[in-house]
């Protein structure tokens, strides 16, 4: 009891301290490093709240992939000569920013403290109807069945994001290879990691994807791990990424949301409601969608990090 409280206090103080560090950091790199550490601490906080699905996602996407994205963005900014140490805002601006942040903090704190106990929610209804989904993990049940539309839109947003990034390519490299090609390394730590980790990572990702039906896990966490493995091999210069004009590449990104939409429309035709799954085949249908979505999301996440086709040299 006391030990649990001590851990909670440490976690809260640590994440507040790191958040302060992110704001106070004068160098972008320092701020990003602290942001990643903050994300990992947040993941631990979610574990303490028994929200293992959220913890996995926070660690994989919130800290890991966002961190890599931010580092890549910093590198591109620096190359364009637009990175400078942030100039402190004037005194009046500081006061107003502080006031604004304080108001939001107080409002959020009040909202949390004013929640009735037990907090209102649909958890009881989800638990009562979970059997209909043929799944054991209520989070997956919500994501794939009760709020399937949200998940479909989330997956579709990723496709749009990739299109958006690709659209930033200059005319000269339009339809070219995403990102700057990394020189191949044959020895040293980078080559070691690129050869050693992907087989393990792929097994872990498929495991997380597969147990997602009945235990914490699922496509987004698995896709983040798969994307990380792909990026590792890419950083070591061991793979050639197909150009953005490549149809197999485009099909991989679009397949997940397309399949999800097709199944949704089939539900409309057969069961009479969009995203209604066929009776008795709910779990197999969900698993198929999860596997194809995982592949699409993994490809999209990796391509987001690689960036638009360009001729610049890698860092």
């Amino acid at each position: 009891m006391i030990a649990g409280l001590a851990v909670d206090v440490l976690l809260a103080a640590g994440s507040l301290g790191l958040a302060l560090g992110v704001i106070r950091a004068r160098r972008v790199f320092t701020a990003i490093a602290l942001f990643i550490a903050h994300g990992l601490l947040l993941a631990l906080a979610w574990v303490r709240l028994d929200a293992l699905d959220v913890a996995l996602t926070e660690a994989a996407i919130g800290a890991g992939l966002s961190g890599v994205l931010l580092l890549a963005a910093r590198h591109r900014l620096a190359r364009g000569g637009s990175e400078r140490t942030t100039e402190a805002p004037g005194r009046v601006a500081t006061i107003f920013i502080g006031l604004g942040c304080a108001c939001i903090t107080v409002a959020l704190g009040y909202a949390v403290l004013a929640l009735p106990k037990p907090a209102p929610g649909l958890a009881a209804e989800v638990a009562a109807n979970l059997a209909a989904t043929e799944l054991g993990n209520p989070v997956t049940g919500v994501l794939m069945v009760f709020r399937g539309l949200d998940t479909l839109l989330e997956a579709a947003v990723l496709v749009l994001a990739v299109i958006g990034v690709w659209s930033l390519a200059p005319d000269a490299t339009w339809r070219g290879t995403p990102g700057a090609p990394w020189p191949a390394v044959t020895d040293g730590p980078r080559a070691l990691l690129a050869r050693l980790l992907p087989p393990i990572g792929i097994v872990v990702a498929v495991h997380i994807l597969w147990v997602g039906a009945d235990a914490p896990g699922g496509k987004f966490q698995a896709a983040a791990i798969l994307a990380a493995m792909g990026l590792l091999v890419w950083f070591a210069g061991l793979v050639r990424v197909p150009p953005t004009a490549s149809w197999p590449l485009r099909a991989t990104i679009a397949a997940g949301p397309a399949l999800f939409m097709a199944i949704g429309l089939a539900g409309l035709a057969v069961e009479g409601a969009f995203l209604a799954y066929p009776e008795g085949l709910v779990k197999p249908t969900i698993l198929i969608v999860e596997f194809v979505l995982a592949a699409s999301v993994a490809a999209a996440l990796a391509l987001l990090v690689m960036g638009a086709p360009s001729r610049d040299a890698p860092p």
Partner: peptide, 13 residues
């Protein structure tokens, strides 16, 4: 084992 590999690789880098 994974932490061993990661820190053994990150250290020299």
């Amino acid at each position: 084992a994974l932490v061993l590999v990661a820190s053994a690789a990150a250290g020299p880098m």
